[in-house]
Design a protein around this nucleic acid. Structure first.
Lengths: 194, 194
DNA sequence: CAATTTTTGGACTCGCGAGTCCAGAAGCTG
DNA sequence: CAGCTTCTGGACTCGCGAGTCCAAAAATTG
């Protein structure tokens, strides 16, 4: 399938429109007709650009969202080389998810892990990338002598990822960000050797 | 609606059968006909015992599952009064979720938070109960002088809940329990003032 | 045992949503 | 401009699943 410029634009519009729509409202109950209406397209186009139907479209959206999750944490996440940077990153994460409220794209992805095979891979790669950035940040701090060399950077990064995921999940279902903040702060304190 | 002994048994069979079926396989794709087949009942019975239909049935299952989550951690969770008890509890949690593999009843509940109003309450109460037990355990340790009195028990309990939730979520989607273990261990180390 | 209520089975309706199909419009290429 | 490909719209099929309905079987009560 070769796409002209126009075709590529339409495809993009479908993905971004779906993503935006997914961001507010029940992810499970979204229908192809909703998407058609919102993106100003037709059934024909949907299947033209995503022959695999709903599953293929959702996977494309998942990849799009996964990139977003990382991007929204930049430039902080990419340069965790001072305690100030860690603080700014922490604030950015909390702010992002507080604004986003009940909906989390990553959670939607994860819900689909069970049903669609490709989703597991997307989620796995995202988590790996995310955790890798954090680990790199910890190592950088160790090289500066700000963090104890004996601390296991991989394990701390894993704990941070778990804390963020869980904190966001609680935020989603209760509306309160206290858990997310507590988890992140506690891991950071651990790094500082408090 | 007054239930005879037989009626009560049937109702129970429906809830437990649904719960068991939910524990393996795609939670979103479960149909009333599946449930009917598995529990050896008929459409008539389903709507007889759950006039509100699928939503009411799922909410009943949710409550059933929520109790299970806590029960599966007993007796450890109820008596976190020594470091040995904390360790046993930690092992019990990890073992439980490792066995459970990709499926987590709580996660299914949370996914429904967005769609059904009652689900949010069930999840909220479960988290509150769970976190309360942990907090009580921390306070008990403080009273014994095993944990620094200046430590904020509520905040540490919140971080633990977040870590567990996130760890389980990662376990569900990647199959590895390292994150869950790292998160729990890190919080416990924090309690011990390492 | 007769009257009443609860329990059970299963056929039926009905709407909805994924996916198909095709014809016509628009866009590229020589 | 002629021939080809890609793009677009929308009507249509088709199966599935939630929920309805009712009549018959058990159980309960007096």
């Amino acid at each position: 399938m070769t796409l002209t410029a126009k075709g590529h634009a339409t495809r993009q519009r479908i993905v971004e429109g779906t993503s935006a729509h997914l961001r507010r409202g029940d992810p499970a109950g979204v229908t192809l007709d909703d998407i058609r209406a919102i993106t100003g397209t037709s059934k024909g186009q949907l299947f033209h650009y995503f022959p695999g139907g709903k599953e293929e479209l959702f996977l494309a959206v998942a990849r799009f969202e996964a990139d977003r999750v990382i991007d929204d944490q930049q430039p902080h996440l990419g340069a965790l080389t001072s305690w100030a940077a860690w603080r700014r990153w922490r604030e950015a994460v909390v702010a992002r998810y507080r604004v986003q409220g009940p909906y989390c794209p990553l959670a939607t992805l994860m819900d689909q892990v069970g049903s669609t095979p490709g989703a597991a891979e997307v989620v796995g790669q995202l988590l790996e990338r995310w955790e890798g950035e954090i680990r790199r940040g910890i190592v950088a701090m160790q090289e500066q002598g700000e963090v104890d060399d004996h601390l296991d950077a991989g394990r701390a990064a894993a704990a941070m990822i778990a804390g963020i995921q869980g904190g966001v999940q609680v935020l989603r279902s209760t509306g309160r960000s206290a858990h997310l903040e507590a988890a992140m702060d506690l891991v950071i304190e651990h790094l500082r050797g408090a």
